[in-house]
Design a protein around this nucleic acid. Structure first.
Length: 584
RNA sequence: GCACCCAUAGCUCAGCUGGAUAGAGUGUCGCCCUCCGAAGGCGAAGGUCGUAGGUUCGAAUCCUACUGGGUGCGCCA
């Protein structure tokens, strides 16, 4: 069957040839071939694949690039998989592969199904992806939605690339904001008892707390009426955060996100875990008492120098040391975060990934410093920031929400356009680029809408399969795989096969950079090539997938279409989007 | 003041951890189709990749300095 990834297979051939050249004395021994790459050429006219081997080896080998290229070309030429080799430009080798190799890709896809393209690059490595981690004080809004989609797709991508992935949500239920939540719910509780209340600044006025107040009334009756805060705060806080987490879990479920683990900040308190994490840092000489300088150019009005317990994060790349205890001795928010990440390190992950909103960018260096210090540099932490989402509707900015008051919720979005459209569109930009989300455009049925265009390609394949079944043609994968794929000789068909062959390579590139948006762009390109082939069928009937009276040719062409659908399904699966059977 | 992110076609954006003549959609212009193989097709024009240096055989990509935009900057999370 051969390697799944044609590019790595061809790179292997190039390396073998280079080794033969070493053995023959054409190249010096002990050359490092790491920089040798086999890639798709920018221009298809150059061939199927190109290698830079001659250029990167010229200097270390002390030879001219074109001389190396000529000898290497002769070696490659003798391999049956290579149709032709030519030397171009400063020393590129352009390879043209035999048609059977591309046709084999189709058979490969059909044999492996949506497992085609799975990589082993992450084999044996455990990665923890932490995302969303919204405060448990209300429903998720659009910003959270982007983080949720990005984190979830990234987790799936890493899984596809062979990593063992944990999806995790850190619940900030230990800070002052959950006290505010409790007081807000208390007001709704009073309201449920017919009292008239006012929502002062520093409370959460959103309607979503009305049912929580009602539920609290049903649970405790009149017990908290006219009682001081000391009586009810702790209990209402627990009750309310539980209610909010139930709400958030339901929001995530509506989007199709399912976490492996929810980690409570509160669970760190009173257990010695924070103290243990800080002690670990203290043992490394990274904890001290000191006074921070005020930030230059932006001195707070009420600045007073105060002695605090500080983490020497500057020793691990941060700009200033960071306080872990307030002047009254209580932990800052950073301390439990350190403990939480310490816990992740102790759980033995090989790689940690955090997804933050862009407004938390200032937090990146200190978090990386903490993980670097806690793990002794063993565990890398990659932090991805998701930029703002700007909503549009009817051609103008949209920011109203029925339930939450001043922000648009995840539910507002998912209820209107569906989880699939939401997820795909959220990945049509790099994570660190701002994103426009237009409620009208994401539902538009045209080429300029990537969601539609990709789904349409999949639906067209399904349509072909249905029609083939009507015509009595067998289209199960086992039959298609055995079809005579040498009948797929047309350039437009070859183009689709070449694109399919890029899938395993693209998965690794996307996984290496933690960049799931590349999947979305690839799917658009693949769909585009498929649509182009389909359109050719309008003018040239011999390019249609169903050839009346010619079962063998039909099955070969259907095999290609089916392979496209399989790869689209695999890609959409990573993005968390269900492929469409038809476009109605 | 400092740190981080960003700057690519008129517009919205890709650009595969340094490769060849920098791509797509949209818009503009020209031709074709009005067919359920349907929600258009083909082609053209359009770029000093923010500016100026540097590293390299080779830079949109890496380094430095600027310009312009966003985010953040002790006892909020």
């Amino acid at each position: 069957m051969g390697a799944m990834n044609l590019f790595t297979e061809m790179r292997g051939l190039v390396i073998d040839s280079l080794n033969q050249m070493v053995a023959a004395g054409d190249l010096p021994a002990d050359l490092d071939f790491a920089a040798v790459a086999v890639e798709p050429p920018r221009d298809a006219a150059h061939g199927d694949m190109a290698t830079n081997a001659a250029m990167v080896l010229a200097k270390p080998a002390g030879k001219k690039p074109r001389d190396i290229a000529q000898t290497l070309a002769a070696h490659l030429q003798s391999d049956a998989r290579i149709d032709s080799v030519d030397v171009a430009g400063p020393g590129f080798l352009n390879l043209r592969l035999s048609a059977s190799l591309w046709q084999g890709v189709v058979a490969n896809v059909l044999a492996q199904g949506t497992g085609f393209g799975r990589s082993t690059m992450g084999a044996g490595q455990r990665v923890n992806v932490e995302y969303v981690s919204a405060n448990p004080t209300g429903p998720l809004h659009v910003g959270h939605t982007r983080g949720a989609v990005f984190g979830d797709a990234l987790a799936s991508l890493l899984d596809f690339a062979g990593f063992e992935v944990t999806r995790e949500y850190y619940i900030n239920d230990g800070g002052a904001q959950v006290d505010v939540l409790a007081r807000s719910v208390y007001l709704r509780y009073l309201e449920a008892h017919g009292r008239s209340v006012e929502f002062a600044d520093g409370t959460y006025p959103g309607d979503y707390l009305v049912p929580v107040g009602q539920a609290l009334k049903e649970k405790v009756g009149e017990a908290y009426l006219d009682q001081p805060e000391e009586v009810w705060l702790v209990e209402i806080r627990d009750f309310s955060t539980d209610a909010m987490m139930a709400l958030i879990r339901a929001d995530l479920k509506a989007l199709g996100v399912e976490m492996d683990r929810f980690f409570s900040e509160k669970s760190l308190y009173g257990t010695g875990l924070i103290e243990a994490a800080i002690e670990t840092l203290r043992d490394k000489g990274l904890i001290y008492r000191g006074v921070l300088e005020p930030p230059k150019g932006k001195t707070p009005e009420d600045w007073e120098p105060r002695e605090q317990t500080l983490f020497k994060s500057t020793e691990h790349g941060d700009d200033v040391d960071r306080p872990i205890q307030k002047s009254d001795g209580a932990w800052t928010y950073f301390a439990p975060d350190i403990a939480y990440h310490y816990d992740k390190v102790e759980r033995g992950y090989d790689l940690l990934i955090d997804i933050f909103g862009a407004d938390h960018g200032g937090y990146v260096k200190r978090m990386k410093a903490a993980v670097s210090a806690l793990s002794g540099g063993r565990v890398p932490l990659d932090i991805k920031l998701t930029q703002l989402v700007k909503l549009w509707k009817n051609g103008e900015p949209f920011k109203m929400s029925k339930r939450a008051g001043n922000f648009v919720t995840l539910r507002d979005v998912v209820d209107q356009v569906g989880p699939g459209v939401t997820r795909f569109h959220m990945l049509t930009r790099k994570n660190d680029a701002p994103l426009d989300f237009d409620f009208d455009k994401v539902l538009e049925q045209s080429k300029e809408n990537p969601v539609f265009y990709v789904q349409y390609a999949h639906a067209r394949v399904q349509s072909v399969l249905r029609k083939a079944a009507d015509a009595g043609i067998a289209t199960d994968d086992a039959t298609l795989k055995a079809a005579d794929l040498s009948l797929l000789a047309h350039e437009a068909e070859q183009a689709v096969m070449r694109k399919l062959a890029e899938w395993p390579r693209l998965v690794e590139i996307a996984a290496r950079g933690n960049e799931p948006h590349r999947i979305a762009f690839y799917l658009y390109d693949l769909a585009s090539d498929f649509h182009a082939l389909w359109n050719r069928g309008n003018d040239d009937a011999s390019l249609r997938f169903l050839q009346e009276g010619d079962v063998a040719t039909s099955q070969a062409k259907i095999a290609l279409a089916r392979a496209v659908a399989v790869v689209i399904s695999a890609g959409l699966g990573i993005l968390g989007v269900t492929p469409a059977e038809e476009m109605r």
